[in-house]
Simulated scan of single mutants.
Amino acid sequence: MSWTRTLLAALAVCVLLLSGAVGCDSGAAREQEDGVSSSPVGEVLDDTDDEGRHYREAGEGDAPEVGIEVQPDPAGGWDVRLTLRGFRLTPAGTKARAVAGHGLAYLFLDDRLVARLRTPEYRLAQGLVPRGTHQVTVRLYADDGTVWAVDGDPVESTAALTASEAETTATSAPGSNPSRTALSAPGARSRTGGQGSPDRAGKAS
């Protein structure tokens, strides 16, 4: 009868394994439905950005910082440069999961998303910036789409830029020098959990 007991034990193990697999599949389905990974990195908060992406609280030792500098390009448009501390931009094709200190940066012009950045430099086309003063904001996201946050606030940086009427046209007259101003350090504001700017000498967070 020993072979009977062995067979019954083997069948019980199979049932347990199958039940575990079903449980895992159900959990994965819930994660996919919520659109937020169950990564143990940071706590996913109830707060969201304007598009409904949840904030993810960075650990005290993993709090990233970002700074932004916006300067006019002599050839037209605006050069945007990011300063990162405790954060690495990941390449395209990176697995969609949250990893401490990694992810990408979203660039907003007056709260309108204009680019998802995986490099610290970007050229803001002149045609995207109408006449007047505007806010350029960079915000850090994890690769699963959650927003990195510190003390409940998104890790982001904002700089102001002002475009004159001459800059609203596609071309400038020969020899002209349209007035363009960009505020990086003095005119910028940052929210990185009260930790300030990565580089306050000409950059903001």
Results as ranks from 00 to 15, higher is better:
T4L: 14
T4R: 14
T4V: 09
L7N: 06
A9G: 00
A10H: 03
L11Y: 03
A12Q: 06
V13Q: 07
V13T: 00
L16P: 01
L18Q: 14
L18K: 03
S19Q: 13
G20W: 04
G20M: 00
V22T: 04
C24Q: 12
R30V: 11
Q32N: 14
E33D: 03
D34Y: 07
G35V: 03
S37Y: 02
S39P: 13
S39T: 10
P40F: 01
V41P: 04
G42Q: 05
L45M: 11
L45T: 01
T48L: 02
T48P: 00
T48H: 02
D49R: 10
D49K: 11
E51K: 15
G52I: 11
R53V: 08
H54P: 04
Y55G: 02
Y55V: 00
R56L: 00
G59H: 04
E60L: 10
G61Y: 09
E65D: 11
V66R: 06
G67P: 08
I68P: 04
I68N: 02
E69H: 08
V70N: 06
V70C: 06
V70H: 00
V70I: 14
P72M: 05
P72C: 09
D73R: 08
D73K: 03
D73E: 12
P74E: 05
W78L: 03
V80P: 11
L82Q: 07
L82C: 10
F87V: 01
R88F: 02
L89N: 00
P91N: 02
P91F: 09
P91K: 10
K95G: 12
K95C: 01
A96M: 06
A96Q: 11
A98T: 04
A98W: 04
G101Y: 10
L104Q: 10
Y106K: 14
Y106A: 14
Y106P: 10
L107S: 13
F108Y: 15
L109G: 11
L109Y: 02
D110A: 04
D111A: 13
A115P: 03
R116F: 05
R118K: 02
Y122V: 06
R123P: 06
L124C: 08
G127Y: 09
L128R: 15
L128M: 15
P130T: 01
R131V: 06
R131C: 08
T133V: 07
T133K: 11
V138C: 15
Y141M: 15
Y141W: 05
Y141A: 15
A142W: 07
V147H: 13
D151N: 14
D151Q: 09
G152A: 00
G152C: 02
G152F: 05
P154F: 07
P154E: 08
P154W: 01
E156Q: 07
E156W: 07
E156T: 01
A159K: 02
A159L: 03
A160V: 09
L161S: 07
A163Q: 15
A163P: 02
S164N: 06
A166D: 15
T168Y: 04
A170D: 06
T171D: 14
T171K: 01
S172N: 10
P174T: 04
S176H: 09
S176R: 08
N177L: 13
P178N: 03
S179I: 13
R180I: 08
T181P: 07
L183D: 07
S184C: 09
P186G: 09
A188W: 06
A188G: 14
A188R: 08
G194K: 08
G194V: 00
Q195E: 00
S197R: 12
P198E: 09
D199E: 02
D199M: 07
D199V: 04
D199L: 11
G202D: 14
K203R: 12
